[in-house]
Amino acid sequence: MGLKEISYGELIPLAVILIAMSVLPMLGLSSYMLTLLSLLLLFGALVSIYDFFYIRSGYINLGYTFIVASSAFSIAITLERLPTALAILAAFPLSMLFSIAILVPMLKLRGPFYSVATLLYPFTLAPIARLFPEVFGGDVGIYVRPLLSSPTHLYYLSLAISIGVLSLLFILLGTRLAIKLAMIKDDETLAESSGIGVVRVKILSHVMCTLMVTAVMIPYTQVSGVASVELADPMPVLIYALMASALYKPGSALYSFLGGMGIWWLDNFMRAAMYDLRLVVASSLLLTIYAARVVLGVAGTKIRK
């Protein structure tokens, strides 16, 4: 079974779900529900991006939240200083600038070295934010200038960006980039010996990943209203992304999207019902899912070949 069969079989159910989601606001949902659904969609997109660029390439980036948080900061920083259109345009190169830092280990390190090095990146953000509170707002973070006031509009913006991201990922699945990422995951030495420009593929995928994350973070920061170092914590984004992409089929946009939405829903429930147990439940779930994969003998397919 190849990559393409997986992707086209998923296109139809995904389209059905997204169409269903586009009519939801017409059912007169509360603005709380709409806000929650917006976050679900955006988180689903974040997980799909993670799954495509990192799980698929075998480069388990544990510093994904660094990209997420620095994208959020980029948007907040530019919105504070520039007119809207210009700010959004400027947010992309700014977040690229941040994330170049994390590209360097990707080019130099492999396997566990890469994972551990990237894990450290998010932890640099908190001390940096405390050292430069006038730029990053210290521990509290910075306020994001609101662009859309209506939750319905925000919901549609979130839906549009999620659809955009997912479509882009599906298009990429049909290209040779997806095959090349799988080749690098399988055997980097052989990929080099097969004339795959490994460095070029890595830079390209990193740039695309950062741009997509930044696009997702535009409505995300609008919904949350703040960009703070809290986003850089492994919990929730990284932990839930690792969980969602391991839930059913790794390297699958549909299942990681659905898994991401489902886990975010659960997280929202936990925040409301048992905030102080959230970390315990989430980490136990992550452990259980990975243990189940090992017991079922499918663990290997997820992270390595």
Partner: peptide, 20 residues
């Protein structure tokens, strides 16, 4: 057996301890 898998699991354990 899978080094990267064990890294992820050890993160989960760290969070579990932190959560408790």
């Amino acid at each position: 057996k899978d080094l990267i898998l064990s890294i992820v699991v050890s993160i989960a354990v760290a969070l579990l301890i932190e959560g408790v």
